[in-house]
């Protein structure tokens, strides 16, 4: 139960607008540490917008404005003295479309540690190897670390992006529909990886795929038209949805 968990991240009265269009309405949501929280809902329900609010990636969208609070370890990340760069180091993100940098596999992983000041070659080598091993990618690519990341398959690229996020040692990894562009086998590999990640990280995943939410997550939030409709332990939500709208969605009557 959520009451027994340590809360690492929490939104309070969160409202987000794109211009005059409200995308998120009064959302309060607590994210439990070392768990996987899934956010589900139909297209356009605001789930990606909500996720991007958690590490202020919405800041790059000029017309987006945010009200309310997101508290990371109790502190509001939207307060004026917040260091966004430091925040994103702690709250990483994996995007819907795999977006490896057009550099070598090695350089992709080393990029984050490098910008945070690690220059020592053997240290970087160690980080690259450890991270790729933790992301279960090492065996597939150890002999072509210096080849372009663009030559990897879509699934490998996405795991590389997860590894890249892990390389800066965040506490939380946000994933925005990370499998929507991938085949079922690649998807299964990423789901295994997510469950593995839980030991060291807190994962928040937005997904279109209800089965995926049911398979991997501990908690599930159902969003509809920018509102948080229901938030429960995943197995409860899928078996005993309290709200009629949640039931309609998960039983496939809608969405």
């Amino acid at each position: 139960m959520l009451e027994d968990e340590e809360i690492i991240l929490e939104s309070v009265d969160l409202n987000i607008w794109f211009g005059s269009n409200q995308a998120i309405k009064d959302v309060d949501l607590k994210i439990a540490k070392n768990n996987i929280t899934a956010i589900i809902g139909p297209s356009g329900c605001g789930k990606s917008t909500f996720l991007r609010a958690l590490n202020r990636m919405n800041d790059v969208i000029p017309i987006c404005s945010t009200e309310g609070e997101v508290r990371y370890q109790g502190k509001n990340i939207y307060s004026p003295d917040e260091d966004v760069v430091e925040l994103r180091k702690k709250v990483g993100m994996v995007f819907q479309k795999p977006n490896p940098f057009p550099k070598s596999i090695y350089e992709n992983i080393a990029y984050g540690p490098k910008i945070h000041g690690i220059k020592n070659k053997s240290k970087l080598d160690a980080i690259v190897e450890d991270t790729l091993k933790a992301a279960a990618l090492w065996e597939e690519i150890e002999d072509r670390l210096h080849a372009s990341a663009m030559g990897l398959s879509g699934g490998q690229q996405q795991r590389l992006c997860i590894a890249r996020a892990m390389a800066v040692k965040p506490e939380i990894i946000l994933m925005d529909e990370p499998c929507s562009a991938l085949d079922p086998i690649s998807t299964a590999k990423i789901e295994d990886l997510m469950i593995e990640l839980k030991k060291d990280y807190t994962v928040v995943i937005v997904t279109h795929n209800m089965m995926q939410a049911a398979r991997v997550s501990d908690y599930t939030a159902y969003f509809l038209l920018g509102e948080l409709i229901e938030y429960e332990v995943t197995s409860y939500l899928f078996e005993y949805p309290k709200d009629k709208r949640t039931e309609d969605y998960i039983t496939g009557r809608f969405g």
């Binding site: 790059v60 977006n99 910008i115």
Partner: peptide, 18 residues
């Protein structure tokens, strides 16, 4: 240059200039 190159770096805690 695709926006995703910028986003990818920003999400790792890069400054805009980095």
């Amino acid at each position: 240059v695709p926006q995703s190159f910028r986003d990818g770096a920003l999400a790792l805690g890069a400054t805009k200039w980095q």
